[in-house]
């Protein structure tokens, strides 16, 4: 889809200003783009490149390293079903099969209505609550097939307001007022702390 809309471009500039180097804002801006479009569009990557002064190839190289940046459209709800050992022992794989058959898709694909994407994942660190899954990275614990059906029905009916659309990181956006922005001096312009300078001066490295 698209480049940043005007409101998001303003946010992008605000985010960039938090870092000593614009390039450091690359990943936060990828999140912002994913929040806007539900996935990380090519045009968005090109726009990010322009904004932070690197090439589109560099943005793409960075973004593709991360599983959670989606380079193609996904469902409004991305459901990660854990099939790793703890979950597997108590029905993780059955849950995946159930999900696939009720939604009529295979893992890694999206329903025709664009609502759901299923992915099977490795341990999401909720072993004590196995079998676990995540919807847009929000945990669902001890998910039985019935609980899964309820979850899907609730999502369809809009009864799970705490789960935002795919790409949204948080319910509220962090805003750092100007007076609270931390020291954004680039590393090469930072003044060495006195103790550090003193240690180096006395050849501390060999000690």
């Amino acid at each position: 889809m698209s480049r940043f809309n005007e409101a998001n471009e303003a946010i992008a500039h605000e985010i960039i200003a938090r870092y000593p180097r614009p390039k450091s804002a690359t990943i936060p801006l990828c999140h912002l783009a994913q929040e806007q479009d539900g996935y990380l569009a090519e045009d968005a990557m090109a726009h990010i490149a322009e904004l932070v002064g690197i090439t589109s190839a560099e943005v793409m190289g960075t973004a593709t390293f991360y599983e959670m940046f989606k380079l193609a459209p996904v469902g409004r709800y991305v459901i990660n079903i854990c099939t790793n050992i703890s979950c597997q022992l108590v029905g993780g794989e059955e849950l995946l099969e159930h999900a696939e058959s009720t939604l009529g898709i295979t893992s890694g694909s999206t329903t025709a209505d664009g609502l759901f994407t299923i992915e099977d994942v490795e341990c999401v660190a909720a072993c004590t609550e196995a079998p676990a899954c995540q919807v847009n990275y929000r945990y669902q614990h001890r998910v039985t097939p019935e609980a899964f059906d309820t979850l899907i029905a609730d999502l369809r009916a809009g009864r799970r307001p705490e789960i935002p659309d795919h790409g949204t990181l948080g319910a509220t956006r962090q805003h750092i007022s100007e007076d609270r922005v931390a020291n954004i001096t680039p590393p090469e312009q930072q003044v060495e702390p006195a103790w550090y300078a003193a240690r180096n001066a006395t050849g501390g490295e060999s000690a």
Partner: peptide, 10 residues
Amino acid sequence: GDPLIHFMHR
């Protein structure tokens, strides 16, 4: 100074 090729994916 033309970083137009890059490692992609992982």
